[in-house]
Nucleic acid binder design. Sequence first.
DNA 1: ACACTACGACATATCAGACAAGCAGACAAG
DNA 2: CTTGTCTGCTTGTCTGATATGTCGTAGTGT
Lengths: 222, 222
Amino acid sequence: MTTVHRESLAEQAAGLLLARIRAGEWEIGGRLPGETTLASQLGVGRSTMREAIRLLAGRDVLSTRQGAGVFVTATDVPEAWGSVLRRADIAAVIEARTAIEVEAAALAADRRTSAELSRMRDALAERGRHRADVDEHVATDAAFHRSVVVAAHSPILLELFDGFEPRSRQAMTEMLRGREQHGDDADQAVHERIYDAIASGDSQAAVTLARAHLTALRSMLG
Amino acid sequence: MTTVHRESLAEQAAGLLLARIRAGEWEIGGRLPGETTLASQLGVGRSTMREAIRLLAGRDVLSTRQGAGVFVTATDVPEAWGSVLRRADIAAVIEARTAIEVEAAALAADRRTSAELSRMRDALAERGRHRADVDEHVATDAAFHRSVVVAAHSPILLELFDGFEPRSRQAMTEMLRGREQHGDDADQAVHERIYDAIASGDSQAAVTLARAHLTALRSMLG
DNA sequence: ACACTACGACATATCAGACAAGCAGACAAG
DNA sequence: CTTGTCTGCTTGTCTGATATGTCGTAGTGT
């Protein structure tokens, strides 16, 4: 041991238990021995064992049901999106973004409140004002797109959008730096039309415009 | 929510604590009040408070040092999909599925190989043969939908689809059990038409049909 | 023979109390 | 100024008691 950081009994117990779970000692969805059994197996008190279980429950590896027992919900924590996306082809990321934003545009056309509409309006104006600097352009563009997803009133879509945003931003920044001009009037006009479609509640038009815009973006980035 | 799994005190306490952390009540690296103080603030016993802290420690939000106290290590928690979806409204899940599958249908129409096409064909036939038993019907339906996403050649979309599948399957099974008839000929015909559109490379039609089908599904499940 | 009910063994949930172990600041001695 | 000790506070761990939920099963009624 190089580090002097003593591991608490609860942490040690959680580690041992996780190892046994990964070794396949119990199926996913399977039931573990009770707290008292596990505690005596590992030679710790019941409350310590409970804290070890909570440690793994926080990672969604275990779950408990009063009266029933302790159950395995996963053998491992699903890989964080960040690392998945970092490896992924940027074209694949844009494809996923297309899926999300097209649906979000359709929902937003139906559900947007007036407050959200004015936030979109502001974001769009801001986007029009910051087209010179690459970083600002990418940031204000992302802010507008996000305001559309917010107006869709779908927490899952928003979560997905936020997950893709960093990788998407990175790719856009890289692409725009390699070009002389960016953020021309035509590009801004496309966004204006998307806004108009959502504002007028025309979900069909919003879908078509959003898809066209993102398809074009994909061909530029890919 | 059909099954209202009562949230334990420890989970409630962890949720409240997380909300206060996210609200910025303490800096990252900052020290929280002691266990006893927090326990009395939230009106729970010390052991329960400790378990709440362990839940957050498992997510790397908190860390404890014997003799020193409880410290914030991060405010940002990339919440695991499983737990997000378990809580999420089924309508929101279908919305996300719509986003993914509509885009997948469009991509599949452009990219499907003949091998993938025949797998879709097989899955569709299988779906037609298992319409009596609810479990089998839901399973074969899911298999067909998945074969479409596979044909889209987008690893991220496939990953997302698989993530939504369990929650979606659960909701569909529950809904169908409450009905006398399901999987009628019209339903199967809709899937046939989606297949035809993808087979003939008509992405526009695939998009329209897929969206219509999933929108109808959402209104049934919601 | 079948469906329903009641009950009890068992499991987790929660609390209270006690003692051990570790940390950090105060403070006195060198 | 440095060092050593003291002390109060905090987390770590265990025990035991009570509350509450789950599930198989024996018994009951039809």
